[in-house]
């Protein structure tokens, strides 16, 4: 153990803090540009909601959810995704590292690849999305008119955390997949961004096979629709009862386990070209 400690004079937490601080300093050099980019990222979340708003100008409800309730689901899912994307967004770009031969440079360093990728490619502009989520989600909760109980408060706090876990797993799984199948990044988008899309709408509006897939295979519907349906007391289709909403965090942990296996499989499969 003594040798190991000498090998690694800095704990990985210290290392992570140092790396993150360096990223922060380097990106904050261009302060004006960075703030503009953060604002743009935040603005993007709002424009993406326009689609759902137009749909609801034609119908009183979507999957049993009114406009305000749809907005709540949307912001809850987007808050979870924004947190996941802040830390794991770069994992979805593993393919570029493989193609350009930059992965080896990271692999030979004495710190785990995951820690390096999370810290090295951290994009501060993604904070803009988190901020919009942190404002939009509580605002939504306040506006839809909920009879608050302790349990509902607890679930409202747990939901975006479970969401962050679920979406982080998606991004990590996508990274592992990209190491195995180079040139097929878009296929992983079906789960990562498809999951984000499906997770941000009332699941009751989805075709049954899609709803079942994003509940029991890729648990995107645990990130907003199921917990919000429980809090609001809205009926959900048979087979996906709203009490499932309480299992967002466990589902996220399960997904994280599966994603870790994918990531490891990807790493084992990867063969450098000797760059």
């Amino acid at each position: 153990m003594a040798e190991l400690a000498q090998d690694r004079p800095v704990s990985w937490l210290r290392m992570m803090a140092t790396l993150l601080a360096s990223r922060w300093r380097s990106q904050m050099v261009y302060r004006g540009s960075m703030i503009a980019e953060m604002a743009t990222q935040g603005f993007l979340i709002l424009t993406e909601f326009l689609e759902l708003w137009v749909l609801l100008t034609h119908a009183p409800a979507l999957g049993g959810f009114s406009l305000a309730e749809v907005a709540l689901v949307y912001f809850c899912a987007n808050l979870g995704f924004a947190i996941a994307d802040l830390t794991g967004g770069s994992l979805d770009a593993t393919e570029a590292l493989v193609r350009e031969g930059r992965l080896e440079a990271l692999l030979v360093r004495p710190t785990s690849l995951l820690v390096q990728m999370i810290t090295q490619e951290l994009q501060l502009r993604r904070i803009g999305r988190v901020v919009v989520g942190l404002v939009g989600y509580p605002l939504g909760l306040a506006l839809v008119g909920i009879d608050w109980t302790a349990a509902k408060v607890l679930l409202a706090v747990l939901a975006p955390l479970g969401g962050a876990l679920v979406y982080f797993s998606f991004l990590m799984g996508a990274g592992g997949f990209q190491m195995i199948v180079v040139g097929a990044r878009q296929a992983a988008n079906a789960i990562t961004y498809g999951g984000k899309y499906a997770g941000g709408v009332p699941g009751g509006a989805l075709f049954t096979p899609i709803r079942v897939f994003f509940t029991f295979v890729a648990p995107a519907l645990f990130t907003a629709w199921l917990p919000m349906a429980w809090i609001l007391g809205i009926d959900t289709p048979a087979g996906t009862p709203s009490w499932l909403g309480w299992f967002g965090v466990p589902a996220g942990l399960l997904a994280l386990g599966a994603a870790t296996i994918w990531w490891r499989a990807g790493l084992r499969h990867y063969t450098g070209a000797g760059g």
């Binding site: 979507l62 079906a190 509006a205 075709f207 899609i210």
Partner: peptide, 17 residues
């Protein structure tokens, strides 16, 4: 693969509306 997934979600939403 991605187009099919997004197509199914988008078709769901329009039909639900």
């Amino acid at each position: 693969v991605a187009n099919i997934m997004f197509g199914m979600i988008r078709a769901s939403l329009l039909v639900a509306t």
